[in-house]
């Protein structure tokens, strides 16, 4: 059984102008110890998915349908107090894009860590301090004893993110939700965070839900990837299949629109703009921009269906399977 099973999740933002259907039936599973990437552009609903799962969504956003099954319990319908005491920050932890903003600026790193350990794990002051030092060491912070006395503004971006990861790991969660954890960090620092997350997964066996717009980052870290477009999953499957033989035209176009050294002529681009969620196009939401669109695409929403070489795709006219992969299986 999957560790987390999201089915038909629907989240809307209720604005003066009407209902903005940001998530329109998102389903996904995460297995224990797996890294699942949720990839999409601004407004695709990737962060909203994370906030809907942990119920940290702010007004005017609201989950209006679907289930989030965790250990036989539906997080959508759980009492807030139960969620807060037993699951959020304990079994499911989250890290965010701006680590320095997520930390409390007027409290030392050490106090933030030991507070969590004392409240969440019932440790004594002295045990909590020893455990905090151990945790900082585990995310490769040099001289952890003196780092405990630092304030967040004294940390570099990379170090602050490692401390956020340390905080998130302090209760030994089974799922870590990482929302753009390396955006805003420098390339070399980004890579250090990638290595750290990879190693922590191998060492602790926790699962990771990585939310990102960065395909290169997803490629470095994920086992499977789900590509979101306008609040629906376009394609989901093992990263190798999605990147080597994408079947959804949107995945294909995203991969092709990367600039790189030695590329001749124009970069391939996706025509048009991201779907307006206030008045989303009927049928497949990508059809107005899709090179493969036919009449049926404007009328019928395509279901997610299994396709070779091993992913699920929501498309009436998928891209042909790439040959080299078909041969090697």
């Amino acid at each position: 059984m999957a560790l987390l099973e999201v089915s038909d999740l629907r989240t809307s933002f209720f604005l003066r102008g009407g209902e903005l259907r940001v998530l329109d039936g998102v389903s996904l599973e995460i297995e224990a110890g797996e890294v699942l990437g949720l990839v999409g552009e601004t407004g695709s609903g990737k962060s909203v998915t994370a906030y809907s799962i942990t119920r940290l969504l702010k007004e005017p956003g609201r989950v209006v349908g679907g289930q989030v099954m965790w250990d036989g319990r539906d997080l959508v319908r759980l009492w807030e107090s139960e969620l807060e005491q037993e699951i959020r920050g304990k079994e499911i932890s989250m890290i965010f894009q701006s680590p320095r903003e997520a930390l409390n600026p007027v409290i030392t790193v050490g106090r933030q860590l030991t507070q969590v350990l004392r409240i969440r794990r019932g440790m004594s002051r002295r045990d909590a301090r020893a455990e905090a030092i151990r945790i900082l060491k585990s995310v490769y912070i040099s001289d952890p004893e003196s780092r405990l006395d630092s304030y967040p503004h004294e940390l570099s971006g990379g170090m602050a993110q490692r401390i956020m990861i340390a905080l998130a790991l302090s209760c030994e969660p089974r799922l870590l939700i990482a929302d753009e954890p390396t955006t805003g960090l420098d390339v070399t620092t980004q890579y250090q965070i990638v290595l750290l997350l990879r190693e922590l997964r191998d060492r602790t066996g926790m699962a990771i839900l990585l939310i990102t717009h960065d395909l290169a980052l997803a490629a470095q870290l994920c086992d499977r990837v789900a590509v979101l477009y306008a609040g629906r999953i376009a394609e989901v499957g093992p990263i190798r299949h999605l990147f080597r033989s994408p079947r959804h035209p949107y995945t294909d176009a995203l991969l092709a629109s990367r600039p790189r050294l030695g590329l001749q002529g124009d970069i391939l681009t996706i025509p048009g703009n991201v779907a307006n969620l206030m008045r989303p196009p009927g049928g497949c939401r990508f059809h107005p921009r899709c090179p493969n669109a036919t009449e049926v695409c404007a009328q019928l929403q395509p279901p997610l269906e299994p396709m070779d070489p091993g992913q699920r795709v929501a498309c009436h006219n998928p891209m042909p399977q790439r040959q080299e992969l078909a041969a090697s299986g």
């Binding site: 552009e41 601004t42 395909l215 995203l254 629109s257 600039p259 124009d266 681009t269 996706i270």
Partner: peptide, 14 residues
């Protein structure tokens, strides 16, 4: 900018 918006802008700049 997002990947797809970025690609168009880069083509334009060139």
């Amino acid at each position: 900018l997002d990947v797809s918006v970025q690609a168009k802008l880069i083509n334009l700049l060139r």
